[in-house]
Design a protein around this nucleic acid. Structure first.
Lengths: 203, 203
DNA sequence: GTCTATAATCAGATAGAC
DNA sequence: GTCTATCTGATTATAGAC
């Protein structure tokens, strides 16, 4: 039932304009707060054109979120396996995530909207969970499994702690304005996180 | 400008009915998805009565979120100081949080709505951050500071990791239906979390 | 104070011209 | 295919009766 926008096929110009405009409005105003009139204006097309490409508001929203979730994250973790020395790898992943994400309004908005609409659109939250959270956790878990010398008690749980720490930090600092109230150094967070996970071996 | 509902004063019956009804609807449908008609029906009063107590929809919403945030969390951490042996304390806090919260629809909805509306209502997100996140972190940070023998590198960062792990676990398992897709044992999470933080000393 | 009834506006979705 | 114009119902907020 989800009108997914023909993944990596002939890219329709009008359809892309619509999705681009829809993203602006949905990410700013949320699902219920978005009017199709505004999407039409933002996309630079008429409202009827939107309805000819997407069945209704729900269809447009689902197609948008699906497309962004999949296109942004399927390649992020997919085929590549994590390699390298533990300290360097964990630092690099954590720092790259925090650096990229803190100024990435699209990522932050997607995360906010998926959580916001998780009750009305459960499939959307499940897709995000499957595509992003579960995949990241499994990948890092596998890395831990391959290195028993690290003394990791439970690889999946530890991977969940690792990514959960990063995501919750971004949510509290960026989405909830902790940065303005009482900034917490992301460098200190990464230091402590890597320290906790690796202090058996590398320190 | 926030119409806070007279904290611990003469409790107005109609006002409480309105807030109770408003909570049902706002927590289910979000801010924009909520109609004042539905609030009136759910609260069992007329719409005009709502407008006589609260200036408008925004005022009602802000008053509601403020009241719940403050009344639920001000005493949770406030005066009491954390005490006891490290392993027992960390286990107890983590298990109590996960056990209580996983079935606590009011808590889950508040968290979801505060994140969802963080852009439209920044003051609300800041209040939540200040009242819940920052306070919890400081309290646990102080506990760590008082026990240098634990070998904690950075007490505040480690406290952030501790609570961030718990909150992100609940968000991913409950709000994003990870529980249905691939459940992750909360016991294993707590074991690994406590193990990571304390393996210098207690193991 | 509280209700019923209503005003004014805006929403999602469609019809029909070109 | 795409646009303009429009229909129908819902929404916020208010007026006025009791």
């Amino acid at each position: 039932m989800t009108l997914i926008a023909s993944p990596s096929q002939t890219s329709n110009h009008k359809q892309e304009k619509i999705l681009q405009g829809a993203m602006q409005v949905f990410f700013r105003d949320g699902y219920a707060g978005t009017s199709m009139d505004r999407v039409a204006i933002e996309a630079g097309v008429s409202k009827q054109t939107i309805y000819s490409y997407f069945h209704d508001k729900e269809g447009l929203f689902k197609a948008l979120i699906e497309q962004i979730t999949i296109s942004r994250f399927q390649t992020l973790f997919d085929s590549e396996e994590l390699t390298g020395d533990p300290e360097g790898l964990l630092r690099q992943v954590a720092e790259a995530y925090l650096l990229k994400v803190s100024d990435d309004h699209q990522y932050l908005s997607l995360l906010r909207v998926v959580i916001a609409e998780s009750s009305r659109f459960p499939e959307m939250a499940k897709l995000y969970y499957h595509t992003v959270i579960q995949r990241g956790r499994q990948l890092l878990g596998k890395y831990f499994d391959d290195r028993p010398e690290l003394g990791i008690q439970d690889s999946e749980a530890t991977a969940q702690i690792f990514f959960g720490t990063l995501v919750s930090f971004v949510v509290s600092q960026e989405l909830m304005y902790g940065k303005e109230i009482m900034p917490l150094s992301s460098q200190k967070l990464v230091d402590s996180l890597v320290y906790l996970i690796l202090r058996n071996k590398s320190i």
